[in-house]
Amino acid sequence: MGPGRLSAAMIEVEGLTHRYGPVTAVDGLSLRVERGQLVGLLGPNGAGKSTTLRSIAGLLTPTAGRVRIAGFDLARSPLEARRCLGFLPENVSLYLDLTVIEFLRFVGRARGLSRAQAWSEADRVVPVTGLEMVRNRIIGYCSRGYRQRIGLAQVLVGDPPALVLDEPTVGLDPAQIADVRQVIAELARDRAVILSTHILPEASRLCDKVLILNHGRCVGFDELDRLAEGLHQESDVEVVVDDLPSHVDWSGAPFDVVEQIAIRTMTRLRLRLTKSDRIGDAVAFLVSQGLSVEEVRPRRAGLEEVFLQLVHEDPSPEASK
């Protein structure tokens, strides 16, 4: 039984640190990704996302820390670890003079498969990634969308249990983005996937967990709902009403209780309370104005809000010194 079967986590990162001279690009990052999990890696530009992904892919040797892929230590057993990992770099570059099928067969051979296995693997991944139309086309003549798909296809050759995808939808048109997202969602069903993206709705739609990096440090790593709960301001509530009358006398609102009222839609209000236990007073005012209150619930922050708050709350390393 190989190390891959002994370890539950397919991708394990412990205390990953990477310094470029005096600059610390990644600072003591730790994470675990299990089979069937899709983790989104988010962060502003220069947060250390690409350095993290390149370290996990074995392209960079970290200054400190350890990376294990399917139980194989990347420093001690680099070839075994890389055999279990598929990596899609940002702006993937491909061998433009090969045909799609030739390239995929090459990847199979480079992954240590026999000629017959490499050919059958190439044939297997072509329909999975929707490349049947361009199977025998020179890659240099393929569109950007197809090239991104070819990049995804090469990741799948050899069926590695762990995938690292760096900005897989960058530069694609909306239809292509939807296609690629669908492919990624299918891939993540039985693999451990780390997905780096700038597109927050993409992360919230696809990912089971998100890891937010800022200044090379992890400022949040959990399921999106839990991160939002952590940030949830008890004083913010959403009120669903039957219908909002055209004339409401807001001047009579108990401003000692309600700090802010925002009308989101014709049936939805957002209230910011000065004290969360005074919700009854606020609801009583709404009822007195003829509004039929159907539901009152604490407001849940979206990923964008979570992201911005975590990033802005985190002081820069220079500022914290």
């Binding site: 990596f87 770099p89 993937v92 491909l94 480079a110 992954r111 090469q154």
Partner: peptide
């Protein structure tokens, strides 16, 4: 320069 070396070096090749 083109970036294909990244791909090549991410494969299990010494």
């Amino acid at each position: 320069r083109s970036g294909t070396l990244d791909l090549l070096m991410s494969y299990p090749l010494s």
